[in-house]
Design a protein around this nucleic acid. Structure first.
Lengths: 324, 324
DNA sequence: TTGAAAGCGCTAACAT
DNA sequence: ATGTTAGCGCTTTCAA
């Protein structure tokens, strides 16, 4: 591997001159520049970023910590992050905390070792409160940990509200909310939005707690069997919705005639099950992009116009709800 | 940020001693060690990995380049990679080439700037042939570019073969293979395996080329309408299979009674559509793990026991095929 | 316009 | 058992 010295020697200039050329900084004679550039090409010289970073204390690398990787929310957000990161010349280190606080702080430690320029974290751990003391710029995804820590969140309250609005407007009288783990703030917010609309209309609903990805079929079945009058179901994931529809078929219910169903996430699944699923779409890629845009501002010490970005959701109407 | 000098000064020892303590290398008095360790804690000292890497020329970081991120194959492989990488103390840099060769080589360039210890690449680009000249250890996923470059691939030939075996054994007479883009080696191999079994039985089948993720519904429909006698369908993705089943329902065909269907990938989707999809499972997480295990050997200059790892597939029988 | 040299934080050979 | 020091590859100040 050629280094800056090799290049300098080849052209008979000092390393300082070569440095000026590769950084496009300071005076350097046009002819010398040409010579140096040729030598760089010939030797296939690529500056060592470690030496550079050692001096400059920036790494042009950002760290991303997510509690899961194989989850459409996170990998879509990651896709958005990577996209903009690339445009700004940042590298992305990806870490999977597996919801493990221990592991999370291990990653953070690695990050400071590597002079990471900034961190994007989607986490439900209780460590989060400690992060605001970190001197590294940080943006949280899908959660606000403190007024002072910039965030990008999806408008979950609106998601719940829109779902209720749609179901009730389409004629549903007896609603149930099959939601995600109620410890999650996002889930609480969806509930809040859902209830908010119902309150406005003096309606009530049942709530059943499930997992997003592996919801217990038996819990769904038990509930729906015991409540045969249910005619509107709001699910906190498309997966839950798919399972609900499965159960409904077995109970001899027609969707959307007897029961209307709304999912969450607008995953591929929503378009592939039949009838096609009405669902709430979170703009995940956009969330990723907004997160890295915020982070970039923080790194450049610019003022954030919007410290807490709330990304709107969108109701995607398909065939599991009735047209109004 | 405290550095090694600060620690040394605090305990009145030399930086060498501190270095010995943090690296657990060379002689150091138990008492001095205690003192140093205390100072490290007190100053919250974390060694700068850049300075270290500058010297040692290893970064404890590996680079991963995939053509897509939001694709169950790649993010599952990524999950496997990250898992083992963490265990071995490696950081993972993730890059999305978007199938763009230009971008791919830009990433490679970044990697050498950062003294990346090794690269895992899943790519269909024509650049691949150049990588074997790279001095950085490299492992390819899902593709063999050269006898000399270690790889981890899924047994696609067997995948095709097993699918044909299952369909024919279950009584199918008129088969069609809705496959992925035929430029892909993986797709060609599945075809090869599928045909191989058919040849053995003196059977033939039609082949229709589609996209994995966004297969054109109309092509599927056209084909199935024109060939009403089809009774066995092998699809190169679960998504294709889901769309096929959609079309079949509209054509009034019963699955699996009239037509049997086999998908590929064993995604979440397979269990959520009804009837539940029989599919070929690629062990993607395992592929990721095997890739990083190979890479780790290369980095440590150990001999690879198996240069080209072929990960077996598995037929997951569900309800879109008949029991034999 | 260019070069010499200090120094970023760390490791390791060598000396003590 | 510990310290001194050169050097990893680069940037940047200062001097020429």
């Amino acid at each position: 591997m050629a280094n800056i010295k090799n290049v300098a020697k080849k052209v008979n200039v000092s390393v300082a001159t070569v440095s000026r050329v590769i950084n496009n900084k300071g005076y350097v004679n046009e002819e010398t520049r040409k010579l140096v550039e040729d030598a760089i090409k010939e030797l296939n010289y690529i500056p060592n970023e470690f030496a550079r970073s050692l001096f400059k204390k920036v790494s042009k690398t950002i760290g991303v910590i997510f509690p899961h990787l194989s989850n459409s929310f996170y990998y879509s957000v990651l896709e958005g992050i990577e996209e903009i990161a690339f445009e700004h010349g940042y590298k992305v280190m990806i870490c999977n905390s597996h919801e493990d606080a221990e592991r999370e702080s291990e990653y953070i430690k690695q990050f400071v070792k590597y002079n990471i320029d900034g961190i994007i974290i989607g986490s439900n751990s209780n460590l989060l409160s400690r992060y605001k003391e970190l001197e590294i710029p940080i943006v949280t995804i899908d959660r606000i940990i403190d007024e002072s820590v910039p965030s990008v969140t999806s408008d979950n309250v609106s998601g719940g509200y829109q779902a209720a609005l749609k179901l009730v407007s389409s004629g549903c009288k007896n609603l149930v909310h099959f939601r995600g783990p109620s410890i999650l703030l996002t889930v609480q917010e969806r509930s809040k939005g859902f209830q908010k609309f119902l309150n406005e209309k003096n309606l009530t609903c049942d709530t059943v707690d499930l997992a997003f990805i592996n919801p217990e079929m038996s819990l769904i079945q038990q509930y729906l069997e015991s409540k045969q009058n249910i005619d509107g179901v709001f699910c906190d994931s498309d997966i839950i919705a798919a399972k609900v529809m499965d159960v409904l078929v077995r109970l001899g219910k027609k969707v959307p005639d007897d029961v209307q169903v709304i999912g969450y996430d607008n995953t591929l699944l929503a378009e592939l099950i039949s009838p096609k699923l009405t669902t709430i779409s979170q703009r995940m890629i956009e969330m990723g992009k907004e997160a890295i845009i915020s982070l970039n501002c923080l790194i450049d010490k610019e003022e954030l116009i919007e410290k807490h970005k709330l990304i709107p959701i969108e109701l995607i109407e398909r065939d599991t709800t009735k047209l109004i």
